[in-house]
Amino acid sequence: MQTVLIVDDEPRIAEPLMFALQREHFAVRHVALGQQALDAMVEGAFDLMVLDVGLPDINGFEVLKRLRRDSEVPVLFLTARQDEVDRILGLELGGDDYVTKPFSPREVVARIRAILKRLQPSSPGPRQADWQHDEAGARICFRGQPLKLTRSEYRILSALLDRPGQVFSRARLLDICDSDEDSFERSVDTHIKTLRAKLRPLGGDGLIATRRGLGYVLEAS
């Protein structure tokens, strides 16, 4: 499951977009301030950031400048401005696309999909060839064998599978679970344990590794 961070201080803008993304099987996190966005990027991995230019604490362009010191995560700008200079500046700073308010949430989701598709690697690595992920049917197979997964197990494994080699903190995985039953970070440990048990008979022992003090990672090779 691909993850999107929405950075916008207006609930009337952020909430419909969150709903549209979740309906299309994205995991979504929302923050209202630029500094919160930078902190969130340190805490966990995201596949794309939707970034409002007019934030109350840090201008969106400045957020992107700071973000690009350490991260190449794709960024889609949201803005109420229509000035061509602003659009060009956002793209020159490293933004991937630009949408002017008001906008259709469906259009933004389509643009997000286009960005992510464009950035996908042209061919899978040897480890990825072991996996088959049917996102529409919410099913994951490993080496041709379907895995019987709970809702939370599916969400966790989907996130790990989308970003092999990327360490996910317990807090980030708990957020991805998005379940009332999972209210403590230790519940993530339980889900990881059961996932490992389901992969072990298929020769997948050790694929989900622990990074002590950091979180969990799906080994990329």
Rank of each mutant, 00 (worst) to 15 (best):
M1I: 10
V4I: 15
E10G: 09
R12A: 15
R12E: 15
I13D: 04
F19D: 11
A20G: 02
Q22R: 15
H25Q: 13
H25C: 06
H25K: 15
A32E: 13
Q36M: 06
V53F: 02
G54V: 07
L55M: 08
V63R: 06
L64E: 03
L67W: 06
R68Y: 08
R68Q: 08
R69Y: 10
S71H: 15
S71V: 05
L76A: 05
F77H: 07
A80E: 09
V85P: 00
R87S: 03
G94P: 04
Y98G: 06
V99E: 05
V99A: 09
K101V: 07
S104W: 01
P105K: 09
A114N: 12
K117H: 12
S122E: 14
P124S: 04
R127T: 08
Q128H: 03
D130E: 15
D130W: 14
W131Y: 10
Q132R: 14
D134H: 11
A136F: 13
G137V: 05
E153I: 01
R155H: 13
L161N: 12
R163E: 00
F168M: 04
F168D: 00
F168K: 00
D180L: 12
D182M: 08
F184H: 13
F184N: 10
H191I: 03
H191S: 07
A197G: 03
A197S: 12
R200N: 04
T210W: 00
R211H: 10
G215W: 01
Y216N: 00
